[in-house]
Simulated assay, not measured.
Amino acid sequence: MTVHEPALQRLLDEAEIRRLLTTYCTAVDDRDWDLYRTVFTPDAFIDYTSTPHGQAGTLDETVAWLSENLTLLPMTMHYVLNVDARIDGDTAIVRAQFYNPLQIPGVERVSFCGGYYNHSLVRTADGWRSERLVEDNVWFDNNPFV
């Protein structure tokens, strides 16, 4: 083992984690719930309660809720930025900023929200997967729900 192998593994892990978060965004914006499921472990817990009318639950409960509720929005476009991955062997704690322009029916102009995705990740045979996601929605511009 050379001195460079741990550094290389860390870079590979960080790149795979960023790709996982991109897959998450693509799945949500495309309403591709099969792809969404690939981001998570089967027993994942997902908490969107910081979002207006959000909920928390299992992966199956969350997919059912998202597939029902996101169909009401003509457009969402999630961006993930400033990914901070604290990797410890086969686990990682990830905090990443999100920015999401979205169109809400009946609202005159585009709304925007942002905050943090807080993931607990595990390395699986299929790569990094989230076993817990807690969304922290920090701000919401043009929020019709207040």
Rank of each mutant, 00 (worst) to 15 (best):
V134Q: 06
Y24W: 08
L21V: 09
F98L: 00
D47S: 07
E14N: 14
Y79P: 04
D32W: 09
L21F: 09
G114Y: 04
E16A: 15
L66G: 10
A85K: 01
P42I: 00
Y36Q: 02
H78T: 11
P6F: 11
R18P: 02
P6Y: 08
L11K: 03
T124S: 08
Q97V: 09
R95W: 04
P74V: 00
R95V: 05
C113N: 15
L59C: 02
T2H: 13
G54R: 03
M75C: 06
D34T: 15
D84F: 14
L133G: 00
L72M: 13
A64F: 02
D30H: 14
L72P: 02
T51L: 10
E131W: 06
A64K: 07
L70A: 05
Y117R: 00
A27V: 04
W33P: 03
D32N: 12
L70M: 15
H119C: 06
S120K: 12
E135S: 14
Y117P: 04
A15W: 09
T26M: 13
A125K: 12
Y36L: 10
R10Q: 13
D34H: 11
T51R: 10
V122F: 03
Y116N: 07
G57Q: 03
V80N: 05
A85R: 06
I17H: 02
G89W: 07
Q97P: 01
L20Q: 01
L20R: 04
G57N: 00
F98C: 01
F45M: 06
P101S: 01
A85Q: 03
N69A: 05
T71R: 13
Y36E: 02
A64I: 06
P52G: 05
R86A: 10
S50T: 15
L35W: 04
S120F: 11
S130G: 04
V39C: 05
R31P: 04
E108A: 14
S130Q: 00
D126K: 02
S50P: 09
L102V: 10
L81N: 13
L35E: 07
A64V: 04
N69H: 04
I46V: 02
L72Q: 13
R129G: 02
D47V: 11
T23E: 12
E16R: 15
S130E: 00
N142Q: 15
E5Q: 14
F112A: 08
N69L: 02
N69P: 00
G89L: 02
Q97L: 13
N142K: 11
D90L: 01
P74F: 00
M1Q: 14
A15T: 15
G127M: 04
E131T: 10
